[in-house]
Design a protein around this nucleic acid. Structure first.
Lengths: 339, 339
DNA sequence: ATGAAAGCGCTAACAG
DNA sequence: CTGTTAGCGCTTTCAT
């Protein structure tokens, strides 16, 4: 039988003070005598005391947890994002609980309604399928910050980059390198998925500004945003009577899958086909050739999102939703230019 | 002011029963009349009741959380592992808290001593630097399951594959393809790091069995197990008077970095240099060429580890440490064989 | 099969 | 600056 976990009262007894005083010391309450503090700290150390977090949560109404809900943690973009969120949260002494939604409306609804099997002080949600309309009258008042895409009607705080503009820039980059037959991989059938809709819009506009029509056979839908879907989609593009000379993929995993397929069948990148993606995951700098992509300022997204949560938690729950836009850069690598 | 979160007593009042009865329904206590249960469930739904987890934890002594501590979440192997652990934990209705240790002894010590800023029912720790000796007399009795590497003296439950044998098999595979100058990337200066020590041992034995001496200039140390370290190490191997014709990297990220470097400088893989890694991360099937690697049964590791925790939590805290060995396969891809 | 009462370990509000 | 009291919302005995 292991020794029971020491309680505040044990520490208080040992230090010869009241429980409240020990609590004051632990919580850095300013008005404690140096002498008392040292005494208490000695007792704390001697007993190897650790606060009982559930008890503190119950008493204080704060849990010290925030939830980070992303479509899937094994997507490198999201695991890299998670690392940034954890770092940002640490500055506020928050612990991050990672939740996977699969991007499904049902799972995302559970998150915004606070129906997860734990209590959190705030939620950072990378939205995929829920629309602004779905977010009206949510049945929970936990502060919520959306990340992912700029959503049109603002009913919640969000932090995001401009996918339309980024897709426009990236498509324009492809056109400037002399490409004329630019295809796109990553359309989703369900138009609630903002990512593909917005990126397609940027692509469409860039083509329009260059006087080029969107060709239906150059627009390839995918089921998921994974490498294998990119590889399959690339295969169908190559099978076309007139294959594209450039392909814009809606994320890096799709592009990396497409690249793998091109390398396998011996189509030269970028000579025969140029390739670009979104998100600048670590891997994209090490592919052969390295991938041109959109690098969001993911660290900023994480920090601003957590900071927004902190503001809401420190009383500001009534001011209108805040919308924070973050930067991106077009990272030009050898998949589009033989520099 | 949002409506207050309903409490058990609110539900009890609405349903016209006692608090205890509501609690019974929520916790699937068997002896509840059908009629009563339906009444309570209706009230639960009407009020949109959600248990207050900290309160439950305080009263029951169980938190419903387990910690998963890994070196870094942005390493794909660990994020993929995390997904498996979360899935396995869900079967026990546990929520997984992911902790990053950076592989440092200090951080790992905090984990085994339960000094994380939250309370958990159990811990799954992927050990990197702590030795069995460090694990003796830990100051915490939270059930702990180690994963990562088989450790010699067993003082805690663990689930792991056999790195020595895997490295032996992989090196042997390289030798069988006709390679004679096999280098290795991934040695760490600190011998407490079991991964590199064990994998080197397997490499050494395979060479010895083939009558080949380990060449010091073919053993390249790294600071970290990341792509860039692999690329740099590969550069130094190529600069040798007699470069290797095969390189065993101690994880896939190192191998992928090395591959990137080889592709950049125009050394053909596998013709000029064969390359192999460990872990079989998703990415490794899509590199150019795809990477030969060791595929651990990561799903089994996750499931067995969580199951072990469950056993310990259901009373069995005294039986001797359990050691579970999991399978691996040598996945042969084009980085070593032109099939 | 259901209810009443106690208490988990902490913080908050107030008193001194 | 420190102590006292109450109570957070649930589960656990123990009765009935």
């Amino acid at each position: 039988m292991p020794p029971a976990r020491p309680r505040l009262s044990d520490v208080a007894a040992l230090a010869g003070v009241s429980q409240k005083t020990v609590s004051n010391v632990i919580n850095d309450y300013p008005h404690v005598t140096e002498r008392t503090r040292l005494k208490v700290e000695a007792a704390l150390r001697e007993l190897n005391y650790r606060v009982n977090i559930p008890a503190r949560s119950l008493a204080s109404g704060r849990t010290g947890f925030i939830a980070l809900a992303v479509p899937s943690l094994d997507n490198p973009y999201f695991s890299e994002l998670a690392v940034h969120v954890m770092a940002a949260a640490a500055a506020y002494r928050w612990t991050v609980l990672i939740e996977q939604t699969g991007g499904s409306p049902d799972a995302e609804t559970l998150v915004v309604d606070g129906a997860m099997p734990y209590l959190v002080d705030g939620i950072v949600l990378h939205l995929r399928s829920l629309t602004p309309a779905d977010l009206r009258n949510r049945s929970d008042s936990t502060p919520l910050v959306l990340i992912g895409e700029k959503t049109p009607h603002h009913i919640a705080d969000y932090v995001a980059g401009d996918s339309v503009q980024a897709a426009y820039d990236l498509t324009t980059h492809l056109l400037r390198t002399g490409r004329t037959r630019v295809a796109v991989i990553g359309i989703e059938r369900d138009t609630r998925f903002a990512t593909s809709t917005l990126r397609f819009e940027g692509y469409r506009r860039a083509l329009a500004d260059a006087g080029i029509d969107v060709r239906d056979d150059y627009v390839v839908p995918v089921e998921r945003f994974q490498r294998e879907n990119g590889a399959i989609a690339m295969g169908s593009l190559l099978a076309l009577p007139e294959p594209p000379d450039a392909v814009l993929c809606f994320n890096d995993l799709l592009a990396l899958g497409a690249l793998s397929h091109l390398n396998t069948v011996g189509v030269a990148v970028p000579r025969d086909v140029a390739l670009a993606g979104f998100d600048d995951i670590d891997e994209s700098a090490y592919s052969s050739p390295p991938l041109t992509t959109i690098a969001w300022d993911t660290k900023a997204i994480a920090e601003r999102a957590v900071a927004l949560l902190a503001e809401r938690l420190s009383g500001d729950s009534d001011s209108p939703p805040r919308e924070i836009s973050v930067d991106y850069t077009v990272v030009q690598r050898q998949s589009t230019t033989l520099s």
